[in-house]
Design a protein around this nucleic acid. Structure first.
Lengths: 228, 228
DNA sequence: GACCTTTTTGTCAGTTCTACATCAAGATAT
DNA sequence: ATATCTTGATGTAGAACTGACAAAAAGGTC
């Protein structure tokens, strides 16, 4: 087989950064400054450079386009998209990464992006450049499953949070309501999911809630399953 | 950013085809005929061509190297490996696919491979070319998890099989023994997992076993979990 | 027909899940 | 001070499920 039979192509590392904000599941999107899809919203991301690891490229692009530090995030790679005609610039294979973070200050726009902002997933759906709508859907479904099997929900929360905060994450991401009593029992009964800090948070009104921080466990055994 | 800053690279679609054979978990491996790693065992796979979809390339390479028809297989893509120095020929990103099939006749060797054969996973471990050992490990772990949450175990079996056959799949892939009574109760109690054909299989000696075929369901609810 | 081998079915106790109601702790109003 | 309000924390009974166990059924062989 001749060498030219092999597709010379480029790899793009794209990022789906999710958070819970204003009671909604939101995703970090940029507005594109360059061709193609100028002015359209897209997931942050960009081309992998010569000699650069794909995951490293994801962290770099995140920093360049949004000002966020990706080294602290747990990036999880999921299904690539490599259809030959998915990018007008030529053959570009997208390697998407999913990360979850607390509701932090709005990031700043960088070189390739004119704006970078949190947007509710519902609002950007069906309006992103490339095939990013599809990638976003796959990321959201993956995040939902992650909540069932891992302790990743704590990544949506700040360093200290209440059981109610954590339940809110599940409710927003899954789009269903959970029983506070049963949820609390499952969370506190799972070794290493959360550990009490001893502190309490005063609400505007009502009984103070105990504060917790993320525990050492990463997988949930048994899982916390959503309704069918 | 100059265009040359973007890595020009190639995509390889690699396949991890698993089966249960002789009571062991086995994987389809080829012996490489060309540089690099000539004479060494590797997973089947090869470069994606110009204008070719990655999944289509996986099917084509499988056919070329092993004579197997991949169109009938349910290929599931998992984590890519794109470290810059993982291939001596240059920058090659591997997109691995996992598939599971029944114990079919030994495939035939093709162009890039001098041999293609089933080998027990335990025997090939730590002896494959490139980083295929790592990819194989990830595939096996994924297959194990798949058995917990999906009905994929039926893909290890021929069109008609017994509950004992199916249990054997779980035992071999998980490497642990299961209680026949509890297993049977779970399998037959899960809607759409298996449906009886009415036929029976005569063993050399002992009571005939009822035959089943795969049902329509793809996900297991509730899951069948292995021991911790 | 007794015996052997393999498959299939049954039971029981412990655990987990779900649905539901009550109490606790602080702030505010009277 | 007391009542009241709001939110967080905890308890309980029935249903469903899991895991550990033994006995019966269906065929062949001697």
């Amino acid at each position: 087989m001749a060498d030219r039979d092999h597709a010379q192509l480029r790899i793009a590392a794209d990022l789906v950064i999710l958070t819970v904000r204003d009671g909604k599941l939101q995703v970090l999107v940029i507005t594109r400054r360059n061709f193609p899809f100028e002015g359209k919203r897209a997931l942050p991301g960009g081309f992998v450079r010569v000699g650069e690891d794909i995951g490293a490229a994801a962290v770099r692009e995140l920093s360049e386009e949004t000002g966020l530090d990706g080294t602290a995030l747990r990036l999880e790679q999921f299904a690539v998209h490599g259809e030959p005609d998915r990018d007008p610039r030529g053959r570009v294979v997208s390697v998407p990464y999913l990360a979850i973070m607390p509701d932090l200050p709005i990031p700043t726009a960088g070189s390739d992006a004119s704006t970078a902002a949190w947007m509710p997933v519902e609002e950007v759906r069906a309006g992103l450049a490339f095939d990013h709508d599809l990638i976003l859907d796959e990321a959201v479904e993956r995040a939902r499953r992650r909540l069932e099997l891992t302790t990743i929900a704590t990544a949506f929360c700040p360093a200290e949070f209440t059981i109610g905060d954590l339940r809110n994450v599940y409710e927003v991401v899954w789009g269903e309501t959970l029983d506070p009593r049963n949820f609390s029992r499952k969370v506190t009964g799972t070794e290493g999911f959360v550990e009490p800090t001893g502190g309490r948070r005063m609400p505007v009104t009502g009984r103070p809630a105990a504060l917790y921080r993320a525990g050492g466990a990463t997988t949930l055994n048994p899982p916390i399953l959503r309704q069918r």
